[in-house]
Every structure is written in C-alpha cells, then in structure tokens.
C-alpha cells in the first residue's frame, strides 16, 4: 500500500472515461470522496452513475483516467521508465485483492440462491480471507443480527422478501470488513413498503462512519444522510456539493428539471 494519511480522500477519481464500444458513457469524471463520508450520486438513467460505481470496483475496465481507493491506484501499476509513465495491467489476483476491500450492493441483490442467508454472509470471509468456518459463522450471525435478520439465517434467498434479501446482501458485503461500500440503486428493485428497512440499515451504517458511495433515487435519504450530493448527466458531473445546496438550491437547469421530476 502507498503511504496513506487520514486527510487523503478514500476515493479519488481523476479524468475518468469509459467507453462501451463506440458508446461514450463517462466523459471525464473527477470526484473525491473523503473518508467516513457519504456521497450520493443522482442523475437520470443513462447518465453513467452506475457505470461510475462499477468502475470504482473494477467491474468495468476503465478507458481513461485514474481511480484511487485509499491512495492505491485501481487495476493498474504505474511504471516510470526514462521519464515516461507506462501503465501495466495488474494480475487478476491483485485486482481481486483490491476488490475485496470494497463492498458492493447491487440493485438485484445477487445473493447466492443455493446458499442460506448465513452461508451467503460466510462465503467470502471463508473463501477469500481464509477465516476459519466457526469464526466466520459467529461473525455472520452478528452481521445478520445487525441488519435485523437473526431469525432468517437458515433461509434461502428465495424464501426472503426483497427487503430482507437486500439486507442480507449488505451483511454479506460487510463481512469482508470493507473500507468503502458501494450501493448501486439498492432500493430500486423493491416494493415501496420494503424500501424503508433497507434505507434504515444504510443510515445506521453511515452513522457508524463507513465511507459510502450511493447511487439512488431516494432524495429523502440523500438529504438526510449524504455529506455530498453529486448530480450526473450524460457522463459528466453537472453539479456537486452539500445536499442542502444541490437539492435545495440547484444551479443548473438539468438538476432543477431532474429534481422537479423526482420530488
């Protein structure tokens, strides 16, 4: 790891570009997420906000720019030779290790359907970190209790409601003791009455000091929990700042019209 200090941001995105073939999805994104803060990314669909999140976790190979998490360049190694800097792709093993430090929660939960809730939460610590099973089980039970699902440990995902599945997914990500949590529209696939239980778990998590990047349409959550709100449109950040500023007094036309539609 490179020398990190507490003042250094947890996530640093510089000039990020991402192209899917000819489709230019991210067109130069610069963003910093300070340690322990919650950054909510808003924007219409197709604005590139999910792609941004997936790039941070290296689920997408970036086309240009740099992403640093905890000061460490993601996915590449910079080699300076004769005054020229060349990027070398990191070995998949190293990339996997980088990903292990970042928790991710998906819109469609993506729980492992052939494992119980408890086994879902135990899986990565046992298989990736080599934690002994008994220890992982105890910890998984604690995490399920933290998300309010201690009594559902033996259930398979298909036997849980959407909100319960998403809370298991959050516990599964937390089991790796991540330093950063990414939420990709965590409540968009839920019935309205189930959204609250997931948001409340996320709120507790934010209060505990977790650094979080959240792509969502829940403006109320952004207003209450976010330290910074980022509004994206057509692959660029249009506006960013504290929630009261971006949500309360948006400067850009596009932000205004988006908020008018969502609120």
């Amino acid at each position: 790891m490179s020398g990190t200090t507490d003042t250094e941001p947890m996530v640093q995105v510089e000039g990020l570009h991402k192209m899917f073939g000819d489709l230019h999805v991210l067109k130069g994104v610069d963003l910093e997420v300070p340690r322990g803060s919650v950054c909510v990314v808003l924007g219409p669909s197709g604005s590139g906000k999910s792609t941004l999140l997936r790039c941070v976790n290296e689920l997408e190979e970036i086309t240009g720019g740099r992403i640093r998490v905890d000061g460490e360049l993601m996915g590449y190694r910079e080699v300076t030779k004769n005054g020229r800097t060349v990027l070398h792709r990191l070995h998949p093993k190293v990339v996997a290790r980088q990903r292990a430090r970042i928790g991710m929660v998906f819109q469609r939960f993506n729980l492992f359907p052939h494992m119980t809730a408890l086994e879902n939460v135990m899986e990565a610590p046992v298989q990736v970190l080599g934690v002994p099973k008994a220890q992982a089980r105890t910890r998984a039970a604690e995490l399920l209790e933290r998300v309010g699902l201690a009594d559902r440990a033996g259930h398979y995902p298909a036997q849980l409601s959407g909100g319960q599945q998403q809370r298991v997914a959050i516990a599964r990500a937390l089991a790796m003791d991540p330093e950063l949590m990414l939420f990709d529209e965590p409540t968009s696939a839920l019935d309205p009455e189930l959204v609250g239980e997931v948001l409340s778990v996320m709120r507790d998590l934010a209060r505990s000091g977790m650094t979080m990047m959240v792509v969502t349409h829940e403006i109320g959550f952004a207003r209450e929990v976010a330290d910074a709100v980022v509004f994206m449109d057509e692959g660029v950040i249009v506006e960013e700042g504290p929630p009261e500023q971006v949500l309360g007094d948006p400067q850009h036309e596009r932000t205004k019209s988006f908020l008018a539609h969502v609120l």
Binding site: A96, R99, A100, G103, M104, F106
Partner: peptide, 8 residues
C-alpha cells in the same frame, strides 16, 4: 457479486 467480494 462474487467478483465484487474479491473471489478469484
């Protein structure tokens, strides 16, 4: 999801 958890 498995990749995001750091599995090889």
């Amino acid at each position: 999801a498995a990749r995001a958890l750091g599995m090889k």
